[in-house]
Structures are given as structure tokens and as C-alpha cells.
């Protein structure tokens, strides 16, 4: 649906060259909820703005719905934009217009008839749960309601792609959850491909099926959410994952195992998707019944409808037994890693 090929974006600030996006290649498939995460200044905002032509790449190709958008004529460009909608961090509602007129605006630009506008706007307002607020002005709405208006305005033109530019970053956690739920419905009910950027890993966890991590203009890691959450490779990715899945060992336990390093070995077990933790732990304890095993930390997270479980377990066994246990665990398709303390 959206393909980025070797995208580079350079600009000059006070005669100094800044590379905002550095050779990024990425593919978003139809129906994906694709999240790009990175700290501010990572280049994600520049990247998402290229999809609807708010920014142009210095070099590289962007293919949206099968068309290289830079080779399009101005008319085709505008037509293409109509298939792509965007929602914003600060909502960008017109303060001078009420909710109905804000949502109607994209249709007015297309000179649609009054009846059509009326029907579509009402339909969208009821989809986002604001049918009774049509006469209100933006400054009478809460942040969450404002973003709902933004979403209604984005959907009223029947887009194929929805771009979300930090759409929940100005909202509190509870409102964020309800907006994310709404976006999930947008994806499922209308089969709209969503490309979002965020600096919050919780947004990726709760909404996305695919994720890309950006740092200093480069794409450092990307894949299915469950993969990246389960086995982040780069240190920035690990930092992001740790913000939502903590496998930090509590301090007093850490002290204890550091003191008794000789008698215990700590292993981290990662259960991805369908592997159930309980069955493995049962089998493990049955097979190695002479080995003492203590759970040091555990975390189970729901991702893409399946579960990711991360357990840190201390085993009191010698090196050869530990190797035997690792091999046994791997037979269950469970990832096992050494934990250094």
C-alpha cells in the first residue's frame, strides 16, 4: 500500500546540512496498522509527511497505492491526497467552525451536494460517538472529543490510508486508550490502512501489528510487533520495549542472587504467541524435579491478540544440567536467554 524506497531527506539550517531521513526503506501492506516509533528528532515526522506530499524527499521513491507519487501530475496528486487522510497531535480543528462544519470541510472542498454532506457528516459523527455535539465549537470540547472530530473529518472522504501524526501524544492515558480503540475499529470496520508515528511504546503495543524503530534518521529495526517486542535487537528498541514490558528484577531479589551467584543460574524465557507458559513450566519441573526453580520476575502482555510472556527464573543447578534444561526449553519453541547480574 505504501512503499518507501531509499528515502533521503536533507535540509539546510543556517547553512548546516541536516539529514532528517537517511536511506529508509519500508513497506506498509494493505490493512496494516503500522507504527513508527522514535524519539523526537528521529525523522519519523518528516517520513510520514512525505506520504501525502507535505514534504518531498531529497532522493528515493514513495509508492502509494501502486503509484510513484513524485511522478504524478498536480491533478493526480490532489486526487491521490483524497485517498489519504491525516489526523494530528494538536487536532488542527478550525476554531471558527462548529463540529459539523469542521467535519464537512473536506467534502465542501470537493463541492459535494448539501444532502450528501449532511448524510456523510452525520454518519461519521455517530461513528465516533459525537452525534449530539454537532453544533458545539472546538473550544467547548475536551481533547479526546477534539481528536474524535479529527478522526470523523479524516474518514468522511472514505480514505484508503489514515496517517496519524502523534495522534494521542496530547491526551491523557485514559483518553489515549479510547482513541486507540476507535482507531482499531477504523481499521477493522472500514479496512483502512493506518500508518502512525509515536514516541509511546504503549500505542504500538495496544494498536499496531507492525512496528519500525527510527533513530537519527535511520530505520534501525522493523518487523511484526510480537517479534520486535519479544526479541528487540538494537539498544534503542530494547529501551522502548522496556517502557512497557519490564523484566527488571526487584532489588532485594537481585541482591540475593548476586550474593548466591555460585548456586543459581538465571534464565529469561520468552513465550511468543501460542506457546503457553504453564505447560512448559510443568514439564520442566517434572523432568528436572531435583532442581529448585524460583520465578524472579514475570510479565505477560497481550499483543496482536496473542500473548507475549517473559519470565526470569532462577535455577539451582550445575552448568551441564543448565545446558540440558536450555535444550529442553528450546524444544517447546520458547526463546531462552542468559541473564547476567
Amino acid at each position: 500500500m505504501i512503499v518507501f524506497k531509499h528515502i533521503v531527506k536533507e535540509f539546510y539550517q543556517k547553512k548546516k546540512k541536516i539529514t532528517a531521513v537517511n536511506d529508509v526503506s519500508l513497506e506498509v501492506q494493505k490493512g496494516d496498522i503500522f507504527g513508527i516509533i522514535g524519539y523526537s528528532g528521529a525523522g519519523k515526522s518528516t517520513l510520514i509527511r512525505m506520504v501525502n506530499g507535505l514534504e518531498n524527499p531529497t532522493s528515493g521513491q514513495i509508492i502509494v497505492a501502486g503509484k510513484d507519487i513524485q511522478t504524478l501530475s498536480p491533478n493526480e496528486k490532489i486526487f491521490n491526497k483524497k485517498k489519504i487522510s491525516m489526523i494530528f497531535q494538536h487536532f488542527n480543528l478550525l476554531e471558527s467552525k462548529n463540529v459539523f462544519d469542521n467535519v464537512a470541510l473536506p467534502l465542501k472542498l470537493r463541492n459535494e451536494s448539501k444532502e450528501e454532506i449532511d448524510r456523510k457528516v452525520k454518519e461519521m459523527l455517530s461513528f465516533v460517538g459525537l452525534e449530539d455535539k454537532d453544533k458545539n465549537y472546538p473550544n467547548q470540547l475536551s481533547g479526546g472529543q477534539k481528536q474524535r472530530v479529527g478522526i470523523a473529518r479524516a474518514l468522511v472522504t472514505n480514505p484508503e490510508i489514515l496517517l496519524c501524526d502523534e495522534a494521542t501524544s496530547a491526551l491523557d492515558p485514559k483518553t489515549t486508550k479510547s482513541i486507540l480503540k476507535l482507531l482499531k475499529r477504523v481499521n477493522e470496520q472500514f479496512n483502512i490502512t493506518i500508518l502512525l508515528i509515536t514516541h509511546e511504546m504503549a500505542v504500538i503495543r495496544d494498536l499496531c501489528n507492525k512496528v519500525a524503530v527510527m533513530e537519527n534518521g535511520q530505520l534501525i529495526e522493523s518487523g511484526n510487533v510480537i517479534q520486535v517486542f519479544g526479541q528487540p535487537k538494537e539498544s534503542t528498541s530494547k529501551d522502548f520495549v522496556e517502557t512497557v514490558i519490564t523484566h527488571k528484577i526487584p532489588k532485594d531479589l537481585l541482591d540475593f542472587y548476586q550474593k548466591n551467584k555460585q548456586s543459581y543460574t538465571l534464565l529469561r524465557l520468552k513465550f511468543l504467541g501460542e506457546n503457553t507458559a504453564s505447560s512448559l513450566l510443568f514439564q520442566l519441573n517434572k523432568r528436572f524435579n531435583h532442581v529448585e526453580s524460583n520465578i524472579v520476575s514475570a510479565n505477560v502482555t497481550e499483543l496482536e491478540g496473542t500473548t507475549l510472556g517473559i519470565f526470569t527464573i532462577a535455577f539451582s543447578a550445575n552448568e551441564s544440567i543448565i545446558q540440558e534444561m536450555k535444550a529442553f526449553i528450546k524444544e517447546f519453541n520458547v526463546i531462552v536467554e542468559d541473564v547476567n547480574i
Binding site: 507535505l54 491525516m86 494530528f88 488542527n92 472542498l109
Partner: peptide, 14 residues
């Protein structure tokens, strides 16, 4: 608000 201009451009307004 510059965001409003950005919105207008994203909607393909001339």
C-alpha cells in the same frame, strides 16, 4: 495556527 495550513494541504486544498 500553521497546523491549519498543514491540514488544508493534507486535504488537497488549492
Amino acid at each position: 495556527n500553521p497546523g491549519i495550513i498543514e491540514l488544508a494541504k493534507s486535504l488537497g486544498a488549492k
